[in-house]
């Protein structure tokens, strides 16, 4: 037989507590004394801190909003006054531009100076090319603000002048020490000057 060499077990002894139970000296129960505030108190505390913080934030946001509204309305109240000044300035400038343009174009018949919406000869309705028609390039009833202004080359005794960029650029670096390719004596043969 195959199992013939194994010992034969006649009885089994099970691992059991000692007779009469374990002695009292063995502490097997959990012993965790309460330390610090209880969980409920901590949750309530954190909640309180959060309520206070969010409340402060909401108040600060409301006040900040009011401050911004105050500054915005201060500017809105000033707008008509600033606009009136700006309008007078642009009217004055465009009048001068118109006078100059009229002087330049005085030999051209039917030229209306300073009028962007003047009819263009040869331009027909719906953009067709038609020598018998004359339509404005703008299909609007509103005022059209000119985007470009032509200033002839500055001359002595002219009614306008161009202020040096130094006035608004603020730095003399580029005017007094310009990059080499902007200098007067710059040539391709002698890039750094002679």
């Amino acid at each position: 037989m195959l199992l013939a060499h194994l010992p034969v077990i006649t009885s089994m002894s099970q691992d059991l507590p000692p007779a009469g139970g374990f002695p009292e000296t063995v502490h097997y129960k959990r012993y965790l004394p309460a330390r610090g505030p209880s969980g409920a108190v901590m949750i309530l505390g954190v909640l309180g801190i959060m309520v206070y913080g969010w409340n402060s934030l909401a108040k600060a946001n409301a006040e900040n909003r009011e401050l911004r509204r105050e500054a915005a309305w201060a500017r809105i109240h000033l707008a008509p006054m600033l606009q009136a000044e700006a309008d007078r300035d642009i009217v004055r400038r465009m009048q001068q531009v118109k006078a100059r343009e009229a002087e330049i174009m005085k030999d051209v018949p039917d030229w209306s100076a300073g009028d962007l919406k003047a009819p263009v000869k040869g331009l027909g309705k719906y953009g067709v090319a038609d020598p018998s028609q004359a339509e404005s390039v703008y299909n609007t009833q509103r005022f059209v603000q000119p985007s470009f202004v032509f200033l002839p080359k500055e001359a002595e005794g002219e009614s306008y002048s161009v202020l040096s960029p130094q006035w608004w650029r603020g730095s003399t670096m580029l005017t007094k020490n310009p990059p080499y390719h902007h200098r007067e004596d710059f040539t391709k043969e002698h890039p750094l000057g002679k």
């Binding site: 707008a79 400038r93 001068q96 006078a99 306008y160 002048s161 161009v162 202020l163």
Partner: peptide, 22 residues
């Protein structure tokens, strides 16, 4: 918003010497 656009010139600022019509 309230002011017209400043003229942008490479050479400098456009100064108009003429005054408003009479």
């Amino acid at each position: 918003m309230t002011t017209h656009r400043e003229g942008i010139f490479i050479k400098g600022l456009w100064v108009e010497k003429g005054s408003m019509p009479e």
